[in-house]
């Protein structure tokens, strides 16, 4: 099992009113499986993703990635875990502005202290079709190019799980389709599990499973 979630709950307050975003939610994703999570705006998709990535803490429940329990980890260990086992793709790309395309892709490997990071990063940039723009900085790249760099970066640490938050939300239809082709093919090629949050039913359909998030619960 690549990722398992048991009885996950998360609430937050809107003014004085408590909103139960996730309610005793369960999720199991096997290695190499792709899962689309769909739902209305405000249903808690991004909250779920942030908990899976260890970017936020649940109120109750357990999250295991590759058998390792996230709840027990402190912030430093969580950060380490993210570097080792996860790749995250954001809607806003989130590249480090002061690093070139190549350096952005090298960053996860450097954090892990891997050897030969540059060769691997170049290979990934080549795989996303940007080897010739390796020295360009994010503000010199188009939206589609930035997202391709972000995909290459997400795969750079050889993660067990890829978490993608509306990866085409900021791209036009054609560029979005190209980016998704790339994401699915690379995930498959590397045997990485993919959990994809999306509004787009066409993109969701390309995943092995589609789960709908409603009233804090996931349903098929």
């Amino acid at each position: 099992m690549s990722l398992s979630v048991e009885s996950l709950s998360k609430s937050h307050f809107q003014a004085t009113k408590k909103i139960q975003v996730l309610n005793e939610l369960n999720l199991h994703v096997t290695a190499g499986e792709s899962v689309a999570i769909v739902g209305k705006s405000g249903s808690g998709k991004s909250t779920l993703l942030s908990l899976l990535a260890g970017l936020d803490r649940p109120d109750t429940g357990e999250i295991k990635i590759g058998g390792e329990l996230l709840n027990a980890l402190n912030e430093t260990a969580l950060a380490r875990m993210r570097a080792r086992k996860m790749g995250i793709i954001f809607q806003q790309f989130q590249l480090v502005q002061t690093l070139s395309a190549l350096e952005n892709v090298m960053l996860p490997g450097e954090i892990l202290g891997d050897q030969d990071v540059s060769t691997q990063a170049l290979a990934l940039l080549k795989a996303v079709g940007l080897s010739e723009r390796q020295d360009h900085f994010p503000n010199q790249l188009s939206g589609g190019e930035q997202q391709r760099v972000a995909i290459a970066r997400a795969l750079a640490g050889k993660p067990e799980v890829l978490l993608a938050d509306e990866p085409t939300g900021n791209l036009d239809v054609e560029t979005g389709a190209n980016v998704m082709d790339l994401l699915f093919s690379l995930a498959k090629e590397k045997g990485t599990s993919l959990i994809l949050v999306t509004h787009d039913p066409e993109i969701a359909k390309r995943c092995d499973r589609i789960l709908k998030l409603e009233k804090g619960q996931l349903s098929a």
Binding site: A53, L55, E75, T76, A79, R80, M81, R82, A83, R84, I88, Q94, V96, Q97, L107, P108, I111, L112, R153, G157
Partner: peptide, 15 residues
């Protein structure tokens, strides 16, 4: 702020 959060998300420890 975003850059700092990103670095943390990518696996750099808060410290």
């Amino acid at each position: 702020q975003k850059e700092v959060m990103l670095e943390k998300a990518l696996g750099l420890s808060p410290l």
